[in-house]
């Protein structure tokens, strides 16, 4: 079962996986099992996976009227758009680090994440303009 990284146990599991993978990659590089570049690529691909997980669960957080600033369905629309942006960016981030030339991957992956952040910020601004929650 995939843990929701937007909860404390989920975040701890995600952090544990990233740290364990980093440690494992370090050991593998030390023993010349894989090159440092491969280790870097895998590590970044995992970080893209975390972005995908965060984006996936983003629309499921805080939908009750008491938990949001505006009408719940409008809040859900904002989070839905943000979630999709982050999932697509996360997939793109992972794919970029797995297949793009190593000289291009850092810039291209950050452009993808940056685009997702712009979409998220835009949808948040639209959401903040939405009418307040029903009393």
């Amino acid at each position: 079962m995939i843990k929701n990284p937007l909860t404390i146990p989920g975040a701890l599991v995600a952090a544990g996986v990233i740290l364990a993978a980093a440690y494992g990659m370090g050991l593998a590089v030390d023993r010349n099992l894989i090159s440092a570049i491969v280790a870097e690529r895998v590590q970044h691909a995992l970080m893209g996976g975390v972005l995908v997980l965060i984006g996936n669960f983003m629309p499921k957080t805080g939908n009750r009227p008491s938990e949001v600033c505006c009408e719940p369905s409008e809040a859900h629309s904002v989070k839905r758009l943000s979630g999709w942006a982050l999932v697509i960016a996360g997939f793109g981030y992972s794919l970029t680090w797995l297949v793009a030339p190593i000289g291009v991957a850092p810039v291209l992956s950050m452009v993808l994440v940056g685009a997702a952040v712009v979409v998220m910020a835009g949808s948040l601004l639209i959401g903040l303009r939405a009418r307040p929650a029903r009393q």
Partner: peptide, 24 residues
């Protein structure tokens, strides 16, 4: 299934969409 949330307001129940990106 966790796809909707029910918010009870007096005698009426208001349903709110609650889909993750994968479920969407």
């Amino acid at each position: 299934a966790g796809l909707v949330e029910a918010d009870k307001q007096g005698r009426t129940i208001r349903y709110i969409l609650n889909l993750s990106v994968l479920e969407d």
